[in-house]
């Protein structure tokens, strides 16, 4: 039985890890994210969320990145 779930990066809980499925953002952001290591199949961990609906801190490979929730929402991930 497939228990994996598809969701968006912003719906992860701090400490949770997901596998990137699709980065559905415009080209400029896509290139930036790709260069920072956001590529399909790579694991991504949510480290923490900023207060007052602030940005998210996520970890891809050996890089910690902050991005806004609206942008994280467009990154599709799979959790097991």
């Amino acid at each position: 039985m497939d228990i994996s779930k598809h969701k968006n990066l912003d719906s992860l809980e701090p400490g949770q890890v997901g596998i990137i499925q699709k980065v559905a953002v415009d080209e400029a952001l896509y290139q930036r994210l790709a260069a920072l290591g956001f590529r399909a199949g790579k694991p991504v961990a949510l480290i923490r969320r900023g207060s007052f609906n602030g940005p998210l801190q996520v970890r891809v490979g050996n890089t910690d990145i902050i991005l806004r929730r609206s942008e994280a929402h467009r990154i599709k991930i799979k959790t097991s």
């Binding site: 952001l29 930036r32 920072l36 890089t63 910690d64 990145i65 902050i66 991005l67 806004r68």
Partner: peptide, 11 residues
């Protein structure tokens, strides 16, 4: 601002 808000947090 045309640049995406994506910043690295270096160690």
């Amino acid at each position: 601002n045309s640049e995406p808000f994506v910043l690295e947090l270096p160690p």
